[in-house]
Simulated assay, not measured.
Amino acid sequence: MINEYPPEYYELNLNINIKNVVEGTVASKLSGFFFIGEDRFVFSALAFGRIGGQNVNVKISKSSSNEIKKIGYDPEIILQIVQKKIIEGEITILDAKKKKNV
């Protein structure tokens, strides 16, 4: 099953941060970032939530994918974990208004 990852992936503390959401009638566009250790990775995503349940398609750049490989992880597995966390709501939504007031 897809949720079966090598043991080292279970110990990762991926904090998923959503910076921007553009809601549509069928899908929403998300942008944000996550960390692996001290390394920050930017992503974009399309989130669908209508027929058939929740689904999220997360994309990262080729250079981010290569950087994830360099630190010893499989980018595809990392993206699966990020997708799962977004679907399950294990995210932080950053409020741009609060940043401007600080």
Results as ranks from 00 to 15, higher is better:
residue 1 M to W: 00
residue 2 I to Q: 03
residue 5 Y to K: 05
residue 7 P to T: 00
residue 8 E to N: 11
residue 8 E to L: 07
residue 11 E to V: 01
residue 12 L to F: 08
residue 12 L to N: 03
residue 14 L to G: 07
residue 15 N to D: 12
residue 15 N to C: 06
residue 15 N to A: 09
residue 16 I to Y: 13
residue 16 I to G: 09
residue 17 N to A: 05
residue 17 N to M: 09
residue 19 K to W: 13
residue 19 K to C: 09
residue 20 N to E: 15
residue 21 V to Q: 13
residue 22 V to Q: 15
residue 23 E to Y: 12
residue 24 G to T: 07
residue 25 T to K: 15
residue 26 V to R: 13
residue 27 A to C: 10
residue 29 K to L: 10
residue 29 K to S: 12
residue 29 K to Q: 11
residue 29 K to A: 10
residue 30 L to Q: 08
residue 30 L to I: 08
residue 30 L to S: 09
residue 31 S to D: 14
residue 31 S to L: 04
residue 33 F to Y: 15
residue 33 F to M: 07
residue 34 F to L: 14
residue 34 F to V: 13
residue 37 G to N: 09
residue 40 R to T: 06
residue 41 F to K: 02
residue 42 V to E: 15
residue 43 F to W: 09
residue 44 S to D: 14
residue 44 S to F: 00
residue 45 A to D: 15
residue 48 F to A: 04
residue 48 F to Y: 08
residue 49 G to K: 03
residue 49 G to W: 00
residue 49 G to S: 06
residue 51 I to V: 15
residue 52 G to Q: 00
residue 52 G to P: 02
residue 53 G to E: 02
residue 54 Q to D: 11
residue 55 N to V: 00
residue 58 V to F: 04
residue 60 I to D: 04
residue 62 K to F: 07
residue 64 S to F: 03
residue 64 S to H: 07
residue 66 N to Q: 14
residue 69 K to A: 05
residue 69 K to D: 11
residue 71 I to G: 06
residue 71 I to L: 10
residue 72 G to K: 03
residue 72 G to E: 13
residue 73 Y to S: 05
residue 73 Y to V: 05
residue 74 D to N: 14
residue 76 E to S: 12
residue 76 E to K: 12
residue 77 I to P: 01
residue 77 I to R: 02
residue 78 I to C: 03
residue 78 I to Q: 04
residue 78 I to H: 06
residue 80 Q to M: 11
residue 80 Q to G: 10
residue 81 I to Y: 04
residue 84 K to Y: 03
residue 84 K to L: 03
residue 86 I to L: 06
residue 86 I to Y: 03
residue 87 I to Q: 12
residue 87 I to K: 15
residue 88 E to W: 00
residue 88 E to L: 05
residue 89 G to C: 06
residue 90 E to W: 06
residue 92 T to N: 14
residue 93 I to K: 15
residue 94 L to A: 10
residue 95 D to S: 02
residue 96 A to H: 05
residue 102 V to I: 07
